[in-house]
């Protein structure tokens, strides 16, 4: 926990010359890992003729209109995914912030039981309840609606959300709450005026985990949505491949456009992004 701050800025090793070799090796590994994406990037601005004549290298002129073609195709999917992510975030934060607050700051009979019931769900793999959940949604008549996409994300996200919120809120100094109570704030006021603003970092983490989850979810939207306008990005791309299978430029442009939201989050919120990838444990790298 504190080991990072304790670490003195002492050089790790004294050997000098060998660093060149280390740089070369790391560069090779990094480039090999990035190569498929770089290939996708260079192909995404080619026409099929350019692709045929200049397979490996970027070829001029760049055809950025491929991105327009791709955007027209995947735009509905992007909108659906964004909607699902936004609605899920609102639902998850509302549910788990309230529950986390109550669990962290109040004592009441059944408190431990309730929390254990929440934690137990961490062990239930999403894929295992996929089929019964599907049948349930079918019985409710929710297939092919946006709700079938949102509700499972809220239900799954609220589990981790509640745990993260509870842990975070327990760390907020009690004095702040005491002071507010002395000033006459009731629990509702404590929640809105103190909890909400102080919890922004953990709300951010939960939101990021949710976006990553929505963007990577595959089987659930594949099975529950057949209406084209309601498809999410992950599923839409599959059919996109089928539609324009021979038009490589727009196809790769579509893949990259679909990746853009996560890439932006990774670039600007790298620390939280990695925490999200690792199951929401902040400070994990």
């Amino acid at each position: 926990m504190t080991s990072l701050t304790v670490k003195p800025p002492v050089r790790r090793r004294r050997a000098g010359r060998k660093q060149i070799g280390v740089y070369v090796a790391l560069t090779v590994i990094a480039v090999v890992g990035l190569l498929p994406y770089l290939f996708a990037l260079s192909t995404s601005v080619k026409t099929n003729q350019q692709f045929a004549s200049e397979y490996w290298l970027p070829s001029f002129p760049f055809h950025f209109e491929n991105y327009v073609v791709a955007w027209v195709q995947i735009q509905p999917y992007m909108v659906t995914s964004l909607l699902v992510a936004a609605a899920s975030i609102v639902g998850i934060v509302a549910l788990s912030l309230l529950a986390g607050f109550v669990l962290a700051r109040f004592d009441f009979p059944g408190r431990n039981f309730f929390f254990i019931m929440v934690i137990t769900l961490m062990m239930v793999p999403g894929i295992a309840s996929l089929i019964p959940l599907f049948v349930m949604m079918k019985d409710l008549g929710l297939l092919n609606t946006i709700w079938v996409l949102i509700i499972p994300h809220i239900a799954a996200g609220a589990v981790l959300g509640t745990i993260l919120m509870k842990t975070f809120i327990e760390g907020i100094p009690q004095e702040i709450f005491d002071a507010a109570r002395v000033d006459g704030a009731n629990p509702a006021r404590l929640f809105w005026s103190i909890m909400m603003p102080l919890s922004l970092p953990v709300i951010g983490t939960v939101s990021l985990i949710t976006v990553i989850g929505v963007w990577n979810d595959f089987f659930w939207p594949l099975l529950t949505i057949s209406q084209n306008e309601l498809k999410t990005v992950s599923v839409g791309l599959i059919f996109f491949q089928g539609q324009s299978g021979t038009d490589f430029g727009p196809m790769f442009a579509g893949y990259l456009l679909a990746s853009l939201p996560l890439l932006l989050l990774f670039t600007f919120l790298s620390k939280y992004f990695l925490a999200g990838v690792q199951g929401g444990l902040p400070g994990s790298h």
Partner: peptide, 10 residues
């Protein structure tokens, strides 16, 4: 770790 930022489907 940049490849981690791409969606699995992509």
């Amino acid at each position: 770790i940049v490849p981690m930022a791409f969606p699995g489907v992509v």
